[in-house]
Design a protein around this nucleic acid. Structure first.
Lengths: 131, 131
DNA sequence: CGCAAGATTAGAATTATTCTAATCTTTATT
DNA sequence: AATAAAGATTAGAATAATTCTAATCTTGCG
């Protein structure tokens, strides 16, 4: 499935900008990135796309399930091409994320949510430091 | 222990702004707040303090262990007066945090971190929605 | 008390992100 | 195949959240 097909399958128009971003995002194995870092890669690759469009695209891709947003740092949004069940190590000092397979890790003892609330997802962030 | 003593014990000068913020923060039971919401409360209470100082103060209090920062939303920082071992439900639709006692919840199967990395803390966020 | 050293405050600046008017795609119609 | 209307998309401008730094306070010493 090429980039344009992948986009159409997700209900998004295959524009030049998106096709090129899909190329960068899903070329090789799974990746973690920020809007800023992906925009930087695009520039290096000679791809004409604004930072605003990178933001829009990352959020659209997240909405249709092509990406997952990972909240680990209050000052920056991370995105992950691995949308399957898994969790993360986060190396705060260098802003690096490392996957933890979902079958390794288990959360037990989550209480029933109050009122009429339903569990959507459980996120585990293992904060690590060098040394 | 009054506000000024509490600050001195933490190695911070008991300025008017900090004393008043401590009053708002630790008056009654545990609380969750953002810089914006605490600043709003201060204004309502007639306390003269800038939003920048609220930010500075929340971060200083976090650094000395009077508060804990809770990362659940990429666009806003939350702070918690409960610094003990516990986790959170997060109601994304209304930006509300609800504590989960640390003795209820358990994370099993966390792999050894790669390289020379050491685990600092494990954060669990149970994302919930109405309905 | 007066002063130097260092801590603190808050206006200004910055950074990350979102909004919206202009532009591009698509689809329907011929 | 060409055209047009509807709606989606892009990116410059605007905004929101947060940080920086010069001016101002506190503290402790003589």
């Amino acid at each position: 499935m090429d980039a344009a097909e992948r986009l159409r399958a997700a209900g998004l128009r295959p524009t030049r900008q998106r096709i090129e971003l899909v190329g960068l995002l899903f070329a090789a194995g799974h990746r973690h990135m920020t809007a800023e870092s992906l925009h930087g890669e695009a520039q290096t690759a000679g791809v004409q796309v604004s930072l605003a469009t990178v933001y829009n695209t990352l959020h659209q891709f997240t909405a249709v399930g092509l990406l997952r947003e990972v909240v680990v740092d209050a000052s920056r949004s991370y995105f992950d091409t691995n949308t399957g069940d898994h969790q993360h190590f986060f190396v705060e000092s260098d802003g690096e994320l490392i996957d933890i397979p979902g079958e390794d890790i288990a959360v037990a003892g989550v209480p029933e949510p109050p009122n009429g609330l339903t569990i959507d997802r459980i996120d585990v962030v293992v904060r690590v430091r060098r040394g």
